[in-house]
């Protein structure tokens, strides 16, 4: 990609992104194209990160492990649902990942947890997301009992309107009361440590890019 094009792309993306400055956008774009690799640009074919590459990034860079959650995060990034993450989706997603406000994050997390996208996190969805969260005790008769109980506890804590499922309002209220519940059903944001490492690595040494 030539310099002029990159410059233009940077400018447009910076305009649409409130959390990154121009330099940071430039870095991320560079990173994106490094990750995508040398695919010849052809009109009509979308260049971007496919699911597997992206999951790999999530796993290696942001330390996520849960397959299901990673899928959901991919969907969260892939706004246009075309199965691959374009450069603008990449910048948008990372802007939330790294710099998102609480409101933005809540919205994003809720979407991640709302598996079927019906606007509610149902008991079944919770169960699905939490099913691996407890150590299985061989002695217990019903291995799922603990999970069910945990779901009940969560509902008790977060379901303010007592309708047996979490609406966004419920979720938002609970998270505002207790920030720790933001990622209540699994880590879908980078943990602070890997976030810092990522930023340090990507945004390092501005001089290197000055002459671009």
């Amino acid at each position: 990609m030539n310099r002029k094009k990159l410059q233009k792309l940077t400018d447009t993306l910076t305009k649409n992104c409130k959390h990154f400055d121009k330099f940071e956008v430039k870095c991320l774009i560079t990173l994106f194209y490094n990750l995508v690799g040398d695919v010849a640009e052809r009109p009509g074919v979308v260049t971007g990160l496919d699911r597997n590459v992206f999951r790999n990034i999530l796993h290696v860079t942001f330390g996520m492990t849960d397959d299901m959650i990673m899928d959901r995060v991919f969907r969260g990034f892939d706004k246009d649902n075309d199965g691959c993450i374009s450069v603008s989706e990449w910048i948008h997603g990372l802007s939330l990942f790294l710099r998102g406000t609480l409101d933005e994050k809540m919205k994003y997390c809720f979407e991640v947890f709302d598996l079927n996208g019906d606007g509610f996190i149902s008991k079944e969805e919770m169960f699905h997301m939490l099913k691996n969260s407890l150590l299985k005790q061989p002695s217990e008769e019903d291995p799922d009992e603990g999970i069910k109980d945990l779901v009940e506890i969560t509902l008790k804590k977060m379901d303010h309107d007592h309708d047996g499922k979490l609406s966004f309002v419920d979720y938002e209220k609970a998270v505002r009361e207790e920030n720790l519940l933001l990622e209540a059903f699994g880590p879908c944001l980078p943990d602070p440590k890997s976030q810092m490492e990522f930023e340090a690595q990507v945004f390092k040494d501005p001089n290197e890019f000055n002459d671009m």
């Binding site: 603990g146 945990l150 506890i153 969560t154 519940l181 209540a184």
Partner: peptide, 20 residues
């Protein structure tokens, strides 16, 4: 019960138990 989940849960379960 909550302490049991604290002991035997991953971080998600732990956070839920702690908050509860």
């Amino acid at each position: 019960k909550l302490v049991k989940y604290l002991k035997g849960g991953n971080q998600t379960a732990t956070v839920i138990a702690l908050c509860s």
